[in-house]
Amino acid sequence: MSKVIDRPEVAKEQHPVAPLLRMDRIPHIWCPGCGIGTVVKCFATALQETEVDLNKLAIVSGIGCSGRAAGYMKLDGFHTTHGRAIPFATGLKLARPELKVVVFSGDGDLAGIGGNHLIHSARRNQDLMVILVNNFNYAMTGGQNAPTTPTPAKTSTMPYGNFEHPFNVPHLVASCGASYVARWTSLHVRRMTKSFKEALNRKGFRFIEVVTPCATLYARLNKLGLGLDLMRFYHQESEIRNGADTRDVAIGYQSKIICGKFVDEDRPSYLETMHEYYRKVLGDKYVPTPPEGGMLREQN
């Protein structure tokens, strides 16, 4: 039977998340077998499924491979300086509190050069959702050692293998006071999407780490094969332990990756704490920044 089915809308819409992407910039720059695109797809799906107001949602990235994510999403997108995505996002959020602000960046950017901002934002339980894509190295610049590189993985600046102790990032942010902490690999597409959806509707500092394959550098320098081989590795070696004590979730070299939702607490966020406190001490004299922001307008 050769019935040609005329469904132009299929060809036109191209892909279910196309409306959320800057299709004029696709194909993206990420390598074959890189997992960052998968995380973007899951985030876009989460946005569609939670039906958040996309006009009031901003995405902020720093520098690096993952830092390009803000540039591919059809949202107010900010590609900022190396490590400064979190403080930039803090300014956006506080100056226009009605915005939902999502930081999407990599491990080197957020936990390395931006580490100070990461811990202080978590400490304040700042109203930000942070997606940290962890590929275990500085990929954009050629595979250098990152604060997340497990020992003794090889990187281009640790050619004999890394001897520095890496961060256990979920533990770091959880101990600073983040109200939501989860980790998945880019293979856990459904759970990752669910975490994104949950986090979009929570307040305070929400942190999701996603372990992704860097086929071109981390995998090549360590002779781990292709992106697909790393996905197979995640398949075999990741273990879901929701509610696990974050002290136990450090990642070793090619060893078990503990995934799951580790923290989900209803703690007052930065803005809530600030409002509540000022209302208590200043009473009616307190004038909060209006939700639509502190921009002066012509009074007619």
Partner: peptide, 26 residues
């Protein structure tokens, strides 16, 4: 669709119409 990092593949419900057969290629 969820796994593809390139937004290059997706699935849609097949139309109830069973006459579809063989048309997938198009």
């Amino acid at each position: 669709e969820m796994l593809c990092p390139e937004f290059a593949i997706y699935s849609v419900p097949a139309p109830e119409d069973e006459t579809l057969g063989g048309a997938e290629e198009s």
